[in-house]
Design a protein around this nucleic acid. Structure first.
Length: 559
RNA sequence: GCGCCUGUAGCUCAGUGGAUAGAGCGUCGGACUUCGAAUCCGUGCGUCGCAGGUUCGACUCCUGCCAGGCGCGCCA
């Protein structure tokens, strides 16, 4: 496990305060809460702590004075990270990273390559992250695509932070909706065969139902015909349709670079008796009562608006009960953290499920639901209505076919989960500077072309050492400082489940490179200067590629 | 009525309780005989929805309003 700069500084400041206390310059301080932040302006340093401001009140001394004391102790600790320290106006302690440390960072990046920004832990946590989990009643839509991009990227981040993630998809292959699917498909089968048929009132009207019907006719006609009972035929059609849809979903997600470790079937819970077992466990916890023959879970004990029925009067479990059983299954698999990613329409469901998880004895904080807000598709400045009637781009597959995996994933990730994302299809389709994905990829391809050019000229691009003085310019320093922060950004994004932060970071890095490129010639007559510039470029390629990799976006060498 | 999310520049959005609130796009004007111009540089008169409160300090936290989205099933 490697500490990042922020963690190292945290430790240094802690030590400095300790030293000051030891020497009597500061009184005993119980538990100083040290905050380290990134100042907005370069003149305030690379890292800054308001610790002196906060201590001032407590110690009844001037913050400037306290700042000076901490500064002197920090300097006496002789860290190679700190280049300079300034105490500014009210009492901020502003720390400037030394240029020597930045050079070390470049070598660290070149040495670690793919592993730069990644951590390993002796005792990694085991995460289960469930996302997409769309009903197997049709192809995935654009909303699922956002969930897929977000869930996969969060998983990537957590893995980069050194923990273990199982990506999981819950298949609701049980109950009313599936039965309705079976009825719809069966009706279409009869329609295709020219027989009389009644299409179910609430059935699935999409064109894809006809494809499924045709597929069943082509492959399973004799099996279907051998069934006497209408319910058995519906069941058969439903099962085949589910297989068809799940296979389609799996294919579409794989094409989106999202691969689940497990596709968990709801039906398996019912078949194995796990639903009953979970109910018994819940009942044993004392949170179940009976009313009018129904079994009700006392979810209000956990902050829900009302108690929830888990077993109907006729003994059939509700959807919630199965979901509780599913989560009980996950709990028993021993995960340290269980995360569900849902759409905004399910937020009201959190309290009851979280309550059940707690009633089953799982720690509240270990189960977390992330809500990804809705997606509005914008075409020609107008919101595209998404309904079951299938607007032009409503399915995930059409989206990928139309604008590609890279652009789709990036657009879904670049905004925070909380933001109601406007997905501008026109902008996404444009291969121009307006499209932020190309801006990033262009930076990567542009550097790669420099290395191709260097090879052509016979310049050695394997750099064992260089003089950092050649990189002592604002553009290069900005780049080095940014890259040195990359491990912190990854960790921060992983811990807060905020993938958009990486998108923002990469934009800044690409921008930094484009500026550097404009201002400085990389392959010059000066061999030493060339070496230094190439080392910098090589590091940038690594960081860009690592970051894009986390987002699931490709880093093309030519475009 | 209750709950969750949102409200920041013309548009789309960043912004861990800190210093003069930022970026992309759009607009307008510049920069390629030399490593990729899918680039760069310049150009912004913002009541951070409104009103209170908390404190050394609030876009950020609390309360109440206003506006938009979504949800409030023994459906899944």
């Amino acid at each position: 496990m490697k500490a990042n700069i922020k963690e190292l500084l945290y430790e240094l400041i802690e030590n400095a305060i300790y030293e000051a206390v030891k020497s009597g310059e500061l009184p005993e301080i119980p538990h100083p809460k040290i905050k380290i932040e990134y100042p907005k302006e370069a003149k305030f340093g690379d890292y800054s702590t308001p610790i002196a401001l906060e201590l001032a009140k407590l110690l009844k001394r001037s913050p400037m004075e306290i700042g000076e004391i901490i500064k002197n102790k920090l300097l006496s600790l002789n860290s190679n990270i700190i280049g300079n320290i300034e105490i500014a106006k009210p009492g901020f302690i502003n720390i400037f990273i030394s240029i020597g440390y930045l050079k070390d960072t470049i070598f660290q990046i070149l040495r670690e390559g793919y592993n730069f920004g990644r951590r390993t832990k002796e005792n990694p946590m085991r995460y289960n992250i469930e996302f997409v989990s769309a009903n197997p009643t049709g192809p995935l839509n654009v909303v699922s695509a956002r969930a897929a991009a977000i869930g996969d990227t969060i998983s990537n981040l957590i893995e980069a932070a050194g923990d273990i993630v199982d990506r999981e998809f819950y298949v609701n292959d049980y109950g009313n909706q599936v039965n309705l699917l079976g009825q719809s498909v069966l009706a279409r089968i009869r329609e295709l065969k020219g027989e009389d048929f009644i299409f179910p009132e609430e059935g699935y009207h999409g064109e894809y139902i006809k494809d499924i019907a045709a597929w069943i006719i082509d492959n399973f006609s004799s099996q279907l015909n051998s069934l006497e009972d209408e319910n058995a035929r519906i069941e058969f059609a439903a099962q085949k349709a589910v297989e068809f849809n799940v296979a389609t979903q799996q294919r579409d997600l794989a094409a989106f670079n999202v691969n689940f470790k497990r596709w968990f079937r709801e039906s398996s819970l019912h078949l194995s008796g796990e639903v009953e077992k979970a109910f018994e466990k819940l009942e044993a916890s004392g949170y179940i009562y009976t009313e009018d023959g129904k079994k009700i879970f006392k979810s209000t004990a956990f902050g829900d608006d009302k108690d929830r029925v888990v077993v109907r009067e006729d003994g059939r479990p509700t959807y919630l009960m199965a979901d509780i059983a599913y989560h009980y299954d996950k709990i028993q698999r021993g995960y340290d953290k269980i995360i569900d990613i849902w759409g905004p329409d399910h937020h009201g469901y959190i309290a009851r499920l979280s309550g059940a998880v707690q009633a089953l004895g799982y720690e509240k904080s270990k189960f977390q639901v992330l809500i990804a807000q809705q997606v509005n598709l914008i075409m020609d400045g107008e919101a595209v209505k998404m309904s079951k009637r299938l607007g032009k781009f409503s399915t995930m597959k059409e989206l990928i076919d139309e604008i590609g995996v890279d652009v789709s994933r990036y657009f879904f990730i670049m905004r925070s989960l909380d933001s109601h994302l406007d997905f501008d299809l026109g902008l996404a389709k444009r291969n121009s500077s307006e499209n932020p994905v190309f801006y990033l990829q262009y930076a990567h391809a542009r550097i790669c072309s420099i290395f191709r050019e260097a090879q052509k000229r016979g310049i050695n691009t394997e750099i064992s050492d260089f003089d950092i003085a050649h990189l002592d310019n604002p553009e290069a320093i900005t780049l080095m400082k940014l890259m040195s922060k990359y491990p912190e950004e990854i960790l921060d994004a992983a811990m807060t489940y905020e993938p958009h932060k990486i998108a923002t970071f990469l934009m800044r890095l690409a921008q930094g490179y484009h500026r550097f490129y404009t201002e400085h010639r990389i392959l010059s007559d000066d061999a030493e200067k060339t070496k230094a510039a190439l080392a910098l470029c090589k590091a940038i390629v690594v960081v860009l590629k690592n970051g894009l990799n986390i987002l699931g976006v490709s880093a093309p060498e030519v475009m």
